[in-house]
């Protein structure tokens, strides 16, 4: 049978998916063992046990100076910033995306501006945000919005423009006003694309979150990583990176699952990652 027609079973697919993870883990363990055999004090590739101990200390032992459980304080602070940023970006994507997608007048008014704005490298705006908004939460949330909103707006607007022209015509022959057409035909078909845009936006959102926290913050996952970097504390950095990755993965899967549950009609055909 041709290779293109050979499909792994359920168990086979899980095993295949596990191979790259196992290989990466094995490479690390071997590399770490080799380095520590040469120098037991090596800090660059700490052993799995050392990382486990460090992670447990961050998660379950109160910090001696502040009395906080640092991992959870950092996680809560970062997730709050991420949530605020994505909420604002999603709100902008809904309003501006719908205006551009539905109304030719809205497209003429807003599309050039959004296109131009999306070309600004967001990180260059960070100093401006710090100066204008101060070093508090607003600047960090602002950077996430600047970094994700243009991309999400364009994705959502394009999804509306991609609706078959026939549907829009047909809604009008059923007597729908612009408002009714928006409420019953456009927006319901926009929601799954908004969820996809949020999933897409979360990738740069994490980058900008960690960047902003690295520069000015007193807690947060990105802040912690850049703080302990000064002591080459790889036993904290690596578990934190994996922790961020896990959170990002869970968020992405949760959104994908929510989309399937809430908009079953949008997932009737085709494979999706």
């Amino acid at each position: 049978m041709r290779l293109i027609n050979q499909r792994p079973g359920r168990v086979g697919a899980i095993l295949l998916g596990a191979i790259p993870f196992a290989l990466a883990l094995a490479a690390y363990v071997v590399g770490s063992a080799v380095r520590r055999a040469e120098n037991p004090q090596d800090k660059l590739l700490p052993s799995l046990e050392a990382m486990g101990t460090a992670f447990a200390r961050m998660a379950f032992e109160a910090d001696r100076r502040s009395g906080d459980y640092l991992l959870w304080v950092d996680t809560a602070a970062s997730l709050e910033r991420l949530a605020h940023g994505m909420l604002i970006a999603a709100g902008l994507a809904i309003v501006v995306g719908a205006l551009i997608g539905i109304l030719p007048v809205g497209r003429a008014l807003l599309s050039p501006f959004v296109s131009a704005f999306s070309l600004i490298p967001p990180i260059t705006v960070l100093p401006i945000l710090f100066i204008v908004l101060g070093l508090g939460e607003a600047a960090k949330v602002g950077l996430i919005v600047v970094g994700t909103a243009p991309l999400m707006i364009r994705a959502v607007a394009q999804s509306v423009l991609d609706l078959p022209r026939e549907e829009i015509i047909r809604a009008q022959t059923l007597g729908a006003s612009t408002m009714q057409l928006t409420a019953r035909v456009v927006l319901p078909q926009m929601w799954p694309h908004l969820v996809r845009a949020i999933r897409m936006g979360l990738v740069p959102a994490w980058i900008f979150l960690v960047s902003a926290e690295a520069i000015a913050a007193t807690e947060g996952l990105g802040y912690r990583i850049f703080l302990v970097r000064r002591y080459l504390a790889m036993d904290v950095i690596i578990p934190y990176v994996l922790w961020i990755t896990l959170i990002a993965y869970v968020l992405d899967r949760a959104l994908a699952l929510a989309s399937r549950r809430l908009f079953p009609w949008a997932h009737l055909s085709g494979d999706a990652l």
Partner: peptide, 11 residues
Amino acid sequence: IVFQKSSVFPH
């Protein structure tokens, strides 16, 4: 109107 390709609302 009825188009050749279905124009009913997929959602």
